[in-house]
């Protein structure tokens, strides 16, 4: 009887391993399509803030190597600024966003035009006010990325934060 239980137990262990293998395999093609994202949200995934009070959180982002994005205050009127937003009715309100100063950047073929950009990693200080409860906030970062020779169309990525208002 014990032998049978052991065999059944082993069989179910293999079953679990096979399920994990199957689900991991199913992700492969999707990942290869997404690998071109210029900006990635790093952290925090979860914050706990006092309900009803303005609270500062620091959001960390990373830009893919070789690319830059316009700062929040680009120097040309036609360039698209980097902006962070939280949708209405999220249970969390963005009362203020403080962006880092851009670094000066010039394109090799146009050394006279100075651009204001972010590269590598950067942070945005967001001041939020949350109601009581657990809010899964799908905020957005809108940016427009370029390298030295070409620019990609403007894009908005989701910034998912679990905000707990206590």
């Amino acid at each position: 009887m014990n032998g049978m239980r052991r065999q059944v137990g082993m069989a179910f262990s293999w079953l679990a391993v096979a399920s994990i293998f199957a689900s991991a395999q199913s992700d492969l093609p999707a990942r290869s399509i997404l690998k071109g994202a210029a900006v990635e949200y790093l952290f925090p995934e979860q914050v706990t803030v006092p309900a009803g009070k303005a609270s500062d959180i620091t959001l960390h982002f990373r830009i893919a190597p070789g690319l830059h994005i316009n700062s929040h205050t680009p120097k040309d009127e036609f360039l698209i600024p980097t902006t962070f937003s939280i949708p209405e009715d999220a249970g969390v309100r963005l009362s203020k966003a403080t962006y880092p100063a851009g670094e000066e950047f010039v394109l090799p073929l146009d050394p006279n035009t100075k651009l204001s950009v972010y590269t590598a990693e950067f942070t945005i200080q967001a001041q939020i006010v949350a109601t009581v409860g657990n809010h899964l906030v799908e905020a957005r970062l809108r940016y427009q990325a370029c390298d030295k020779n070409a620019c990609m169309p403007p894009k908005a990525i989701p910034v998912a934060i679990d905000v707990i208002g206590k």
Partner: peptide
């Protein structure tokens, strides 16, 4: 019991493979 478990295992393995193939073709 072992036959049934092996059958379930084989079904899961096949389902995983079929799912992966489907997603790969859809991506292509």
């Amino acid at each position: 019991v072992i036959t049934i478990v092996l059958f379930i295992l084989a079904t899961f393995a096949w389902a995983g493979w079929a799912n992966w193939e489907y997603r790969k073709q859809a991506a292509e």
